[in-house]
Design a protein around this nucleic acid. Sequence first.
RNA 1: GGGUCGCUAGCUCAUCGGGUAGAGCAGGGGACUUUUAAUCCCAAGGUGCCGGGUUCGAGCCCCGGGCGACCCA
Length: 473
Amino acid sequence: MSGSPLSGQIPYRFDPTSTAAAVESDFGGLADGEESGAVVTVAGRLMLRRDQGKVAFGNLQDSTGRVQLFALQRSTPDFEDFTGLHLGDWIGVTGEVLKTRRGELSIRVDSWVRLAEARRGFPDKWHGITDVDTRFRQRYVDLWVTDESRAAFVARSQILSTTRRWLEERKFLEVETPVFHPISGGAMARPFTTHHNALDLELYLRIAPELYLKRLTVGGFERVFEIARVFRNEGLSTRHNPEFTMLELYQAYADYTDIMELVEQLVSHLAMEVCGTTTLEYEDQELDLSAPWRRATLLELLAEHGGLSVDLDTPREELVRLCEERDIPVKDHYGPGKLILELYEKTTEPKLWGPVFVTDYPKEVSPLSRDHRDRPGWVERFEGIVAGRELCNAFTELVDPDEQRARFEAQEAAKADGDAEAMGVDEDYLRALEYGLPPTGGLGIGMDRLVMLLTGATTIRDVILFPTLRPEQ
RNA sequence: GGGUCGCUAGCUCAUCGGGUAGAGCAGGGGACUUUUAAUCCCAAGGUGCCGGGUUCGAGCCCCGGGCGACCCA
C-alpha cells in the first residue's frame, strides 16, 4: 500500500482481518489513552470525518457497525490525501487499535487504500433520507444511512434461515415448483399473465404454489415446503406488494389442529430467535406470541365482536339485510357462506388483535378445504390473526377428487359471473387426487407480514428490499 | 376511487400582504495536534415538479396535470 492512494489504481482485492463489531468486542475494554499493541485491517465506507490540522478522525462503517479512525500527519502515509477523501468513499485501513484520551475506541491509520470512490454525495449526515420514496428507489443508499432499514433486512434473512432450519429439523423437504402456471389456482386472486413464444402459450405467474405442492404429497413427499415468491395483480398498500413471499407447507397424516400447533410453535420460536422474547410491542400494543394461541370459530367471534348471531340456515334475506345495514355491497350470486364471511370481515376482523386462530369457514368460500367432520356446510380451515393482521391461512386439505371437481365447477361458475379472483378447473390436479392424496394438513404464511411483525415495520415496503414502484419520470 | 398535506441547491429545511430566493450539511479553497453532527474563515452552488391563467410583476394567488405521503372507502 504505497504510492498515492487517490491517484493510484483501485486494488482488485483486499483482505480485511477484522470488522467494526469485532474491534469493539475484542478491544472495548481498553482504558482511555491505552494502546492495544494489536494491529487490524478493516474495510468499509468513510461516513464522517473531523479534520483537525495535523490529526484527523473519521468514522468507518461496515456491515457490522462503526469504528473511529485516527490519522496523524506524522505517521499516516499520504495524510493530505486521506483528509481529501469524500464522505462515502470505501477505504481499507490497517493500524493499531487504541482508545483515545476521550475514551473513543479507534484504529490508528498506519496505512490505508481507497477501495471505491463515492462520486455522488451521501445524504445529510444527520437527517439521512427523509423522503421514503427515495429510500425505496435508492435502497443502496438507504442501507448505509438508515440503521433500522439494514437491521430489518438482516432480521428478514434470519427469519427465513431459521424457518428453513426449523422445518428441516422436523423432516420437511424444501422444494421448488413452477412460477409459470398454465392454470391460475391455489388461491383467490387476480393473476399476472405472460406469454411463452416457442409454445405459443398463455401463462400465469403463480398466485400460490399450493396445487403443485399437494401433487408432491400425492407423489410421496410426506412433508414439503416452499418459500415461494408469488404474484398477485392487485393494488399496492402498506400491507400489499404485487410480488411477495409465502411459506407454504404440507404435512401428510395431519389435520388443521396439528397445523395450528405448528404455527404457534414456529412463530414463537422465531420471536425468541429474532427478538429474544415472545412478548412484543407492535404499534404500541402488547402482543404475546407464546403458545398456545386462542382458538375460536368464526361464528363465535362474529357473535362476540360483531354482536351477530347468524348461521348458514339464517334466511338469506336476513343476511342480505345485515350486510346492507353495514354498507357491504351484495352480489346476486352470494350465498349464505359468502354473506357471513363478508359480515365477519366488516364487523369482526378489524377488532381482532390476537394472536387468535379463527377456525371453521364456510365451504362456499373455501374451495380447497375439506368438509368439517361435524358441521355440514363448513370446512376445517383457519386463519391466524396476529397484531390485527391476517398472518396465515391453513386447512385440512380436501382429498376427495369428486368433491374437488364440484368445488372447481362452482368456482368456474363464479368466474363466469364475473368474479376475476375465482379459480379455474385444474384437470391434472384432479387426476393427481384420483391417484390418492392422504389426509393432509396445509399452511400458507405471509412471510413479509411475519417479518413486519418481528421487526415492528408498519409498511411492507420496509421489509422488501426493492418494492414495486411506479417508474421514475 | 375520495379527502388532506407536500414537491425550493446534491441532502435537510427556511423565506413572503405577490416585488424576482436563504441557511446548515455535503462538494471547492484556507486555518487548526484528541475530535464525536468537531469548530472557524472564504468562494461557489437554483429552469422554485410540469403546463396554462390572473397581474406591471408569481416559488407564493387561480385552473389543469405529474409524483409522493397520510387518512378514508
